[in-house]
Simulated scan of single mutants.
Amino acid sequence: MLVKTKGFGEIDLNEDKIITFDNGIMGFEDYKKYTILYNIENESEKGNTISWLQSIEEPALALPVINPLLVKEDYNPTVNDDVLKPLGELTDDNLLVLLSITVPSDLEKMTANLKAPFIINSDSKKACQIIVENQDYEVKYPIYETIKKLKEKKGE
C-alpha cells in the first residue's frame, strides 16, 4: 500500500505495519490509522532515538515520538487497567510505549509529554493515548540535555 507523507515522501507500507487508534489521538480524533517511521539515514547499531508516528490518512500529520526510558529511566506510569482492555492482552513482549515530543526552533527547549503516552499492542496493532495518573509527570518535560548525551554516547 502506498502512503503519502510530508517528511518521507511516498512510502510502500505493508498492511501489518498499520496501528489503529480507535479513538484517534488527542487533538486529532478523526485520524485512526498510523504507522511508525524511522529515519534510516540516521540509523545506528543502537537504533534511532526519535521516530515518527505517521498518520496513514493525513500526510501532513506526523508526530515525533521517543521511547520514554531514553529520557526518564524510571518512567513507570500509573494507568487504570480498564483503559487498556481494548488493546488486548499486554505483555512485556508486545507492549510499546512512546512519548510525543515537541521540537521548537530553539532545540534547547525540546520537551517530551510524560503525562499522555501512546500505548501500543504490537501483536494486535491496537493503540491508545492515555492520561497517566502520576501527578509528578509533566506535559513538558525538558529532554534536550538527555538527547544530547544519548547522541554523544552513540558517537553522533
Rank of each mutant, 00 (worst) to 15 (best):
N113K: 05
P117R: 10
P64Q: 00
V132P: 03
V97M: 14
I66G: 04
L87H: 01
N121A: 01
V83M: 15
G88H: 05
L99N: 11
E73D: 08
P86V: 14
P86I: 12
D74R: 13
T78K: 15
K72D: 03
N76H: 15
I101C: 06
N76C: 15
S105D: 12
L98K: 10
P64R: 02
M110P: 01
S122D: 04
I66K: 03
D74C: 14
L70Q: 12
L69T: 06
L95Y: 03
K125Y: 02
D93A: 09
A112R: 09
F118M: 14
K126N: 05
K72V: 04
I66F: 03
V79K: 06
L98A: 12
A127W: 10
P64H: 00
N121D: 01
L99F: 09
K85S: 11
N113I: 06
I130E: 03
E57C: 11
D92W: 01
D81G: 07
C128M: 06
S122T: 15
E57P: 08
E58Q: 15
I101A: 08
S122V: 07
D82H: 15
N76R: 14
S105Q: 10
Q129D: 01
S124H: 00
L98G: 06
D74V: 09
P104H: 12
P68C: 05
L61T: 02
T91W: 07
T111S: 13
D74P: 11
P117W: 06
L69D: 03
K126W: 01
I66M: 02
G88A: 08
F118L: 15
I119Y: 00
P104N: 08
E58H: 10
S100C: 05
K115R: 15
L63S: 00
E58V: 14
L84T: 12
D92R: 03
K72R: 10
L114S: 14
G88P: 03
I119V: 13
A116W: 05
L114P: 13
Q129F: 02
L98R: 14
L87G: 03
L107E: 12
L99Y: 08
K72M: 14
L90P: 07
V132S: 00
P59D: 04
V83W: 10
A62H: 02
T111A: 10
M110T: 15
T78M: 13
K85Y: 06
F118D: 11
I130V: 15
A60L: 10
N67R: 00
T111Y: 09
T91I: 09
N94W: 08
Y75Q: 14
N67L: 03
A112W: 10
E73T: 11
D82Y: 12
K109Y: 06
D92V: 01
L99K: 08
K85Q: 12
L70K: 08
P86G: 14
K72C: 06
K72T: 06
P86Y: 13
V71L: 11
P77Y: 14
Y75E: 13
A62N: 04
A62V: 02
